[in-house]
């Protein structure tokens, strides 16, 4: 048998040939840069101190202090209230944003782009950064958290709403207009029935996210169960942290399940 060679691979452009190497080099550079400049104090990470904390913290975390249950549930309730207020505020305030950002509703190019950008800008900030600002503005209380939640949620809901609006069936709207309906009638009979289920579904979904987010707002003084987290960790009261963990996991899971059920029936 003669020496066998596969037929040559199809010719690639220079760019196609270089691309895998280029990607490889960029990735390698990023990782070298990252690992050479990150400052992990390994001596502290693997210290006697760490071993001691591990043996103390972990067992305590897994033996929750149930005597604090009443207090923890009270603050968890406040957390839920914060999330509810914030989400509802956002669910309503996001509606005009959604309409302005939807290109099939608002034909004004400037208004359209401006609202899209505003929504994108909001989404660039983590809730906790927003909350920090509002704590500074209105003082350390739940209201700061509520506002942070509301604004953060407007960013996401506004965008999702506008996508819903852009996907509606415009034939219905045109037909109504052709029948001589005025703008308000078109809105109530042509548009709202098409968008309500999805708006609600997204708002409820956002509530799930907001519940998670509001559990930690208290860490910077914006109310809710996070307040207790800070106190418990500063006092190294890990069995109370353990209980808080259990409560957060249980409540968040429960809300996720219930919300998923409701959303399934809506859409």
């Amino acid at each position: 048998m003669t020496e066998f060679t596969l037929p040559p691979k199809p010719k690639k452009t220079a760019w196609q040939k270089m691309r895998p190497y280029l990607i490889g080099i960029i990735l390698l550079a990023i990782y070298i840069w990252t690992f050479s400049s990150i400052e992990i104090r390994w001596s502290r990470v693997f210290s006697q101190h760490t071993v001691e904390s591990l043996t103390r913290v972990i067992p305590q975390l897994f033996s929750p202090d149930w005597s604090a249950f009443g207090k923890v549930m009270g603050l968890m309730w406040e957390t839920l209230l914060m999330a509810y207020t914030g989400t509802l505020m956002a669910a309503i305030l996001a509606v005009p944003f959604g309409f302005f950002a939807a290109s099939n509703m608002v034909k004004n190019k400037f208004l359209n782009t401006a609202s899209k950008w505003a929504l994108n800008a909001i989404r660039a900030f983590p809730e906790l950064v927003l909350a920090l600002m509002f704590v500074a503005a209105v003082g350390p209380r739940p209201f700061a958290g509520v506002i942070a939640i509301a604004i953060g949620s407007i960013g996401m809901l506004g965008k999702l709403y506008s996508e819903v609006i852009e996907s509606i069936d415009m034939n219905v709207v045109e037909a109504l207009e052709a029948n001589g309906a005025n703008k308000l009638q078109v809105l109530f009979y042509g548009i709202i029935p098409q968008i309500i289920p999805e708006f609600l579904s997204y708002a409820i979904y956002r509530f799930e996210i907001d519940v998670r987010a509001s559990t930690i707002l208290g860490i910077i003084g914006a109310g809710g169960i996070g307040t207790l987290i800070t106190i418990a960790t500063t006092n190294r009261n890990w069995s109370e942290v353990g209980l808080i963990l259990v409560v957060i996991i249980a409540v968040v899971t429960l809300i996720d399940i219930v919300s998923a059920q409701i959303r399934k029936r809506l859409v």
Partner: peptide, 25 residues
């Protein structure tokens, strides 16, 4: 994995700070 997803990252950070001390780790 479902349980891990429900724990807020900053709460995890607090616990790890308690164990490993402050820093990026």
């Amino acid at each position: 994995m479902n349980v891990l997803r429900t724990i807020p990252d900053i709460l995890l950070a607090l616990i790890f700070v308690g164990i490993f001390g402050v820093g990026v780790f």
